[in-house]
Design a binder for these strands. Structure first.
Lengths: 152, 152
DNA sequence: AATATTTATATCGTTTGCGATACAAAATTA
DNA sequence: TAATTTTGTATCGCAAACGATATAAATATT
């Protein structure tokens, strides 16, 4: 049995598992408002800057538009946002929050704190989080560049 | 706009993105053999220890059996493994590798090295990987315990 | 032994995620 | 201007994930 194939030596399996479990930790908090985790991500993007085209949202989340489009349609059905043809560019679909979508921010105020406290542990503290963020950001940047080589 | 809702301050979004991108990095290497990343995980579990019940595989991967069962069925259709009723306990389904499943280990020999080199970067090196693994393992253990409180 | 409970898998329905492809609008080129 | 290419979204199909539920086999209880 080669060491390289041991599950305990895999970075990807750790990321995959940590991601799934952390998403599960969000689940009870978000489902109170009928939201899923990816939908919550869309909300965070739009809370930062409302009225964005589908493409910008997809880019910000590093997802493909064929993932984001159905996600947005489901959120539109829930009355969280609206999708309207762009005026400047008729190809674009501009996504805007409804009042319900804006109000969700207040209703979800304590979600970040609750989830944050659920993650804190011996090796993950306010002191070590910056290092963890740095490593994850580097990994993301490196992989993103390989899949999608950037200009310059 | 509250700081807590900024995408750039989210651990979960980083884990989610890093996990997706790293899985995508595996994709071209695994699809050569008709495999997906979760199927590759199952193979690693069975290479470590062949002939395991569905439940043990699910526990090792920290997945639910309703995720693993269809995964195993697809792999059975591909001739990678067999599913047979347990002799001791007739409720169990014992999953065993076929010769094809065993041979895949040789065919995939250089996958870990290739993916490993795709991840290495300034802040993620052989020196810092243990610290990263430690933090991810702690997060996983903490979250696992909250969802699924362990005895003792 | 008969009944109730637990355990091991499986089925069903919904939401993601993504490769491949389609299509219309905009930009570029001939 | 007409033809070509590029860009922005959407559609389709497939493989996860997972909550809720079902079913059969094993275990515990009465």
């Amino acid at each position: 049995m080669k060491e390289q194939f041991k599950l305990d030596n895999q970075l990807c399996f750790r990321l995959y598992t940590a991601s799934r479990l952390l998403t599960q930790a969000y689940h009870p908090l978000l489902s109170e408002q009928g939201l899923t985790y990816p939908q919550y991500l869309v909300l965070m993007v739009l809370w930062e800057k409302d009225a964005q085209p589908v493409n910008d949202i997809a880019k910000r989340l590093m997802l493909e538009t064929n993932t984001v489009t159905p996600l947005l349609k489901r959120m539109e059905l829930q009355g969280i946002l609206t999708r309207s043809k762009g005026l400047a560019d008729a190809r674009q679909v501009i996504v805007s929050l409804t009042e319900k979508g804006q109000n969700l921010q207040k209703l979800l105020t304590d979600v970040p704190i609750k989830v944050g406290s659920a993650v804190l542990c011996k090796s993950v503290t306010p002191d070590t989080v910056p290092a963890l963020f740095g490593m994850l950001d580097d990994i993301i940047a490196k992989l993103d560049n390989q899949v999608n080589p950037h200009e310059t």
